[in-house]
Nucleic acid binder design. Structure first.
Lengths: 202, 202
DNA sequence: TAGATTGTTAATCGATTAACAATC
DNA sequence: TAGATTGTTAATCGATTAACAATC
């Protein structure tokens, strides 16, 4: 697991602890909660502009703040969802997004029978309007929720629209130029990883 | 990226190639398509019970077959979705799942106002019925699509029901005993990774 | 044959862990 | 003070890449 992935876990863990009123947390506590070694935790956290305290550990408040900052969770990001299938529609309405600073601005599809239909408070827009919309609305991130075979083509349109961040939910691998960031969150691929480990030990 | 994650990428790439009628693929071709080095590709594929051919590369048909087998994509897996929010409902109806051998058997929630409502061809079932259902239906995998704070508690019920594979979509980290396999596919965490890399170079 | 491409060994690189002095 | 816990250095481990002989 990469350090950044662990940062997202530290953030959620420390947020949960803060809600329970915990004020200090040691590297060992975090390690136990997340299945890591305390050494890994200390290494990771030592790269932050934030220090722990001997004998007490890390203050949860400060740790949450710095992790939020490092992960961009203290900023609001303007997001579109591309693909108005079941998954795309669910994501457009997903409550966890606004709560974490991801502000959904619209949902797009290229199927004419879907364009204009309602998805919660949104109307599905035509893919052809994406470039203009992305510019006008200053879109930061596009979520790709289209079938495998359409993913690269859709990505190309998004990239040409000037959007610099892509979250790819399709099973396909996406090729993007330097300066455009792509992160995969491919649910079916994760299921295949899972069944692999179930078939052949961990 | 772990070798298994790459295997899922090889599988999709080689399936796409086969659909286009490509019969042979070299390690360099695969590397170019997936943004890897040919050396990594050869290392990965050399562990499979399948050999390439000098001067020609790997036969797409054979490669697809062995990758399917290794990833468990040649088997049918019996799956329940836990959590009937927007995301859970979308997953229960997601077409990519049955296409890849994941057979959704039911959807569960613990909110009484959701229990009994329709989600496509399913009726939402009560969480309390999960243990009996999982046993009777021989459920292999549960997909956790509940809010962060409920994730561990729901996981505990699933594990107690004898299900050995968990796909966790919640932002929380899940603790499971030996022998129970957990894979994360946390969309919001992936968005945080993305915004991190957008804020601080790649 | 000559050339392309595999499979594998060895080298490099990076990430994880262990160990421990510094510190409160 | 004594003890707990950090931050950091060094050691280990594993994953990626380079190189090249084997092969068709």
């Amino acid at each position: 697991m990469s350090a950044v992935k662990r940062m997202t876990k530290y953030l959620t863990a420390v947020q949960a602890m803060r809600e329970e009123g915990v004020e200090w947390v040691s590297s060992q506590d975090l390690a136990d909660a997340l299945g890591l070694t305390s050494s890994t935790v200390r290494q990771d956290l030592s790269h932050l502009e934030f220090s722990g305290t001997s004998k007490r550990g890390y203050q949860t408040r400060g740790l949450e703040d710095i992790l939020s900052k490092v992960l961009g969770a203290d900023t609001t990001w303007r997001v579109v969802v591309v693909g108005a299938g079941n998954l795309g529609k669910a994501l457009a309405l997903h409550e966890e997004f606004p709560r974490r600073g991801f502000n959904i601005r619209g949902i797009f599809d290229n199927a004419s029978e879907k364009v204009g239909t309602d998805v919660g408070r949104f109307k599905v827009r035509d893919m052809r309007d994406l470039p203009a919309f992305a510019g006008k609305e200053k879109i930061d991130v596009a979520v790709i929720a289209v079938p495998t075979h359409a993913a690269q083509q859709v990505a190309d349109i998004i990239i040409a629209s000037g959007v610099k961040g892509l979250l790819n939910l399709a099973l396909a691998h996406i090729i993007a130029p330097q300066g455009v960031h792509v992160v995969d969150s491919r649910i079916v691929a994760s299921l295949l990883e899972l069944t692999h480990s179930m078939k052949f030990g961990s």
